[in-house]
């Protein structure tokens, strides 16, 4: 039985996911590179044109369909670049819709989902996961490999623990382990 690994390719952060997939996916894994185009950007452009009263239902002027076309082309290019960078046999998959929901749906039946953090990586904490990757991490139907889009911060990034609040605390706090809360 082969293992299916899905790697979610997103603009700006995909290179780290591809690296992790190349290094960590088992040799017999079937790798699927997934990209999802949200409909909201072209819909916003279409809405801006629809809001201009009286300009006519001219498809050649409406930026919505044009953006959808450009988006499809750039998604195809991105997947191609990612497949080249991976340098291992893989298939690509493009989906359209609500991004986080499409990713979860695509991961159904897979053994592993690889994705990158996409939040504020200057302050480590809850915000280092953006809304989309937060949703995917919470709802993914399979194990998730969460990678840093840049160099992984070392344990030196862990702040010194705050002084203990409750009265029966240990007088000499342990050095924080990897599982200690921030």
């Amino acid at each position: 039985m082969t293992v299916t690994v899905i790697t979610w390719v997103v603009e700006g952060t995909w290179a780290a996911c591809i690296d992790a997939t190349r290094r960590l996916a088992p040799d017999n894994a079937g790798i699927v590179l997934l990209h999802v185009t949200g409909g909201d950007v072209s819909a916003a452009a279409h809405g801006a044109y629809a809001g201009l009263l009286g300009r006519g239902p001219r498809r050649d002027r409406d930026p919505g369909p044009r953006l959808a076309e450009l988006g499809a082309a750039s998604a195809a290019e991105l997947l191609e670049a990612a497949a080249r960078a991976l340098g291992r046999p893989c298939t690509t998959m493009e989906r359209r819709g609500r991004v986080e929901r499409e990713v979860v749906a695509a991961a159904e039946g897979a053994e592993l989902l690889v994705l990158a953090r996409d939040g504020d990586d200057t302050r480590l904490g809850p915000k280092s996961l953006g809304p989309a990757s937060r949703f995917v991490v919470d709802h993914a139907p399979c194990p998730v490999l969460l990678v840093w889009p840049r160099e992984t911060p070392g344990t030196g990034s862990i702040p010194t623990p705050p002084p203990h609040q409750h009265p029966h605390s240990h007088p000499h706090p342990h050095p924080p382990g990897p599982g200690s809360p921030r």
């Binding site: 603009e11 801006a48 044109y49 002027r61 409406d62 930026p63 953006l67 450009l70 988006g71």
Partner: peptide, 17 residues
């Protein structure tokens, strides 16, 4: 809306942003 928006989108796509 009509002329600049597609250019802005294409520019962002080209930059992989």
């Amino acid at each position: 809306v009509v002329l600049l928006t597609p250019i802005v989108f294409a520019t962002a796509a080209r930059l992989n942003a």
